[in-house]
Design a protein around this nucleic acid. Structure first.
Lengths: 361, 361
DNA sequence: TTGAAAGCGGTACCAG
DNA sequence: CTGGTACCGCTTTCAA
């Protein structure tokens, strides 16, 4: 086939292949393969000869062809908390959306819901995973010893592990996908401090659960920056509102009657239904209040648009899923992977830079 | 090979293949292929029979195998303006970084620098592209008729086109990769208005070139929000500082002597060297000034850290490159591609949520 | 209008 | 320790 007979966008390659290596090194394909994959049973001299040919030719391995020959496909499981959280829903939607695209890329995504905050079930689910059926697992969960150990065992069985959102500090750092929650809290504080025009006042901080490490870190970051730069504002102790609306109403009402000069609310949790309901019903109190919350969800998007929320700190769920997949794939393929470049960004959303609502949102 | 003999993370697939289709439909591989790729020369009945088999089996095509058999590889060219802009540098760095990763994915990235704002050279470069050598092109540039026509011609020749950063409105909307600059300007305004504590004052707006559509759109968005929400602040006419430092000094000095109550600066351009130099030298004037600029670069990162800049509006160069590649690949493969999901986000950076400096940054 | 068969770039068995 | 060879899933001649 001559060049000018090629259809539009097809380009005939000239990249060196394993055959070229074999020919140049004067060995067989099988031997080249052994060297390429660091398999045993090749003499040092031969290895060197092959390697010489490899870099003389500037050989670059074709991952797709390799995977084809191996009949390898990637089966990735996402272990998600079974809380009725909008944010987790988003994540799940993203996983499903990307699953269809990745299907013709030999990559299968599966989600499994587990009782929230229950490290026993997480550990159990991890232990259940068969390396023959699962090449990688992405897990969200508390960093208890049980979970940590189960992760080690999974890794040992040859399953790639990605820790989502809540850092699991004892696991290798480069398995973490998510934002730095301390910085997220600092960011919230900076916005809070600058948005509040009043000379003094109190800030209410809401948390979902005192157990959640991410909430805690946000709070710490928030406090640090507020203390340093906005000392004229006083920060009230955290108020716990679990994903439980009636309760939040009472708790919030209490807070507002105890403290009369509340001028800002920072909600460290991703479940804002309770807060938003409260704000809607007490619109006079909400007036002039600076509200900063976490995660972009249908609810929080709406609140940002109507002005109930002034700013949102968020992390891109699509990006998280893509990163997790890239990370797990790289781990399975045993190719180097720049974890730094995967770092999820801490996004700030105002009404003005809200991304358009996508079907997947 | 029994299941329990499989090495760690290898999973033997069970997905239906073309062979299964052929068998079930009672035709040959070649015919299946013809139907799958909508090639001519197959009877209607046969087509139906094959299609029936296809969805009975729930067949999903293996793109990698297809590309392998086709010897197809993707050659993508990035046409970049040859301005000495830090932002373009970032973009180029990202392209290079991703080029190495994509190399074993049958995807080659190439950059070419063209005189900035010169639509003739862009058009010429586009016309030069051979479909046999180039499967896709990503172009940054002004949206002149010349460029627009060259893009049409390239598309017709079967080259996938992605329009980066500056929307080329006449080209199909779904070829655009970049942020909505009007919204970016609105975002800047919202931050500006909320960050400024003063009751009144003037805002200086800097632009790189009045020709740049993105700068213009930012300005428009900025004005709209300022007028609507922060009418107590007055916006001065745009001041043009081309990527030319000595000039900016004079221009800025002029502005400050003409208007004494400047309390904020919004720089719509990505070249901030001039502004930053000015601010450094006039630190007394810079005091209390709210400065908002565009794009995260080494220079602007530093300025944000030291406090010369208060907030940065930015777009993720890594994401832009990845999106462009995904878009071009999907176009070449003629698979549907959700452009909405590729929309680049308008990022806001404060000192607190600055992403860690990566090697590629 | 259809089918057989030879690859694409690798991998992995089995024999030597 | 090394080589021959049959695939992997799909595409593409070439012949019928």
């Amino acid at each position: 086939m001559k060049a000018n007979e090629l259809p539009g966008n097809v380009i005939s390659g000239v990249k060196p292949t394993v055959n070229d290596i074999a020919r140049l090194a004067g060995v067989s394909l099988a031997t080249v393969d052994r060297v390429l994959n660091a398999r045993p049973g090749v003499r040092k001299v031969t290895i060197q000869r092959v390697n010489k040919a490899i870099d003389e030719l500037g050989y670059i391995r074709d991952t797709a062809a390799a995977n084809l020959a191996r009949k390898r496909f990637y089966q990735f499981v996402f272990l998600l908390p079974d809380s009725n959280s909008e944010f987790i829903d988003e994540l799940e939607t993203q996983i499903e959306a990307q699953a269809v695209t990745l299907a013709n890329d030999r990559t299968h995504l599966l989600t499994r819901k587990l009782p929230a905050f229950d490290s026993q079930s997480i550990a159990f689910a991890l232990d259940e995973l068969q390396p023959e059926a699962t090449s990688g697992v992405a897990v969200i969960g508390p960093e208890t010893p049980a979970v940590r150990d189960a992760i080690s065992r999974a890794t040992e069985r040859g399953i790639a592990v990605a820790a989502l959102l809540s850092d699991l500090p004892s696991s290798p750092r480069d398995h973490f996908i998510g934002i730095d929650n301390t910085s997220a809290g600092q960011t919230a504080a900076q916005l809070m401090g600058r948005f509040i025009k009043a000379d003094r006042g109190s800030i209410l901080v809401l948390t979902g659960s005192r157990l959640a490490r991410d909430h805690l870190e946000r709070r710490l970051g928030f406090d640090a920056v507020m203390r340093e730069h906005f000392a004229q504002l006083s920060i009230l102790p955290s108020v716990e509102i679990r994903d439980d609306q009636p309760l939040s109403d009472i708790v919030l009402a209490n807070a507002f009657s105890e403290t009369t000069d509340i001028c800002g609310i920072y909600s460290t949790t991703a479940s804002n239904a309770g807060l938003l309901e409260f704000l809607k019903q007490r619109s006079e109190q909400a007036k002039g209040l600076v509200v900063i919350a976490h995660e972009l969800t249908p609810l929080s998007r709406q609140a940002l648009l109507t002005g109930s929320i002034d700013a949102l700190i968020s992390q891109d769920t699509g990006h998280i899923v893509r990163s997790a997949v890239r990370l797990m794939r790289a781990t399975v393929d045993a190719v180097p992977h720049n974890a730094l470049q995967e770092r999820i960004r801490i996004e700030i959303f105002l009404k003005e830079n809200l991304p358009p609502e996508t079907p997947a949102d």
